[in-house]
């Protein structure tokens, strides 16, 4: 599904504070499985996720998505691929304050130009699936942490992506909520989604839901 070949990523390239966050990553990620990136803070997990999720381009190396080389694509097309293929769940949920849960859920679909009626119906179905129907009209800042995360999950699913990318999804959740999150993750995986997440939370990486754990350190993959 996703292939990385000698991928490197530098920040502030050519300047005195140049920093190589990734130092040559070779990796294959299979479709339909749950893969977790694990490693200490600063090891480059988030950076790797942004490259895979088409949020950024590698400084060198190749990224292939379903066989197609996407590492040299302009942002315009990366965005298109990202919108169709990836759904994101962020550590801080990153919902837009002042908008209702439902409005937040349909945000990623607005640039597609699908009719609003269709979008609302789909968002309502997703919220129902996540037991959030009763909160659909509530502003997101009035929701609890767990509810906010479920809104974020619904938002990640609105464009029906094949891959779900979650960066430290349980960092802001307590044990009970983390457990609930893992249940949702399992159902997503069961529905055929490819899941890719980063975490240093043992509850996540040691969970039976996760098929494969990849360890990272200093911008490289390390053997466990």
């Amino acid at each position: 599904m996703i292939e990385l070949l000698a991928v490197k990523k530098a920040f502030n390239q050519g300047r005195s504070n140049e920093y190589w966050a990734l130092n040559g990553i070779d990796l294959r990620i299979e479709a339909g499985r749950v893969t977790a990136l694990r490693g200490p803070s600063g090891s480059g997990k988030t950076t790797l996720l942004t490259l895979i999720g088409c949020l950024a381009r590698p400084t060198s190396g190749r990224v292939r998505l379903k066989g197609e080389d996407i590492s040299g694509l302009p942002e315009r097309f990366l965005t298109e691929i990202r919108r169709q293929t990836f759904g994101f769940i962020f550590q801080q949920f990153n919902l837009i304050k002042g908008l209702s849960a439902l409005e937040n859920v349909i945000l990623p679909a607005l640039p597609t130009g699908r009719p609003r009626r269709e979008l609302v119906a789909r968002a309502e179905a997703l919220l129902a699936q996540l037991q959030l129907s009763h909160r659909a009209a509530a502003r997101v800042e009035w929701l609890s942490g767990g509810e906010q995360q479920r809104v974020a999950i619904a938002r990640a699913l609105i464009n029906d992506p094949e891959v779900i990318v979650a960066d430290e999804p349980t960092a802001n959740l307590d044990t009970v909520l983390s457990g609930e999150f893992m249940v949702i993750l399992e159902s997503l995986s069961a529905a055929g989604k490819t899941v890719l997440l980063s975490s240093h939370d043992p509850l996540v990486v040691e969970s039976p839901v996760v098929h494969r754990v990849i360890a990272m350190r200093d911008g490289r993959l390390v053997d466990l």
Binding site: L55, R83, L107, P108, P111, N159
Partner: peptide, 12 residues
């Protein structure tokens, strides 16, 4: 930033 991350293009 959020809009761009979840699939909005610069042009959008």
């Amino acid at each position: 930033g959020i809009l761009k991350a979840i699939g909005w293009e610069t042009g959008d």
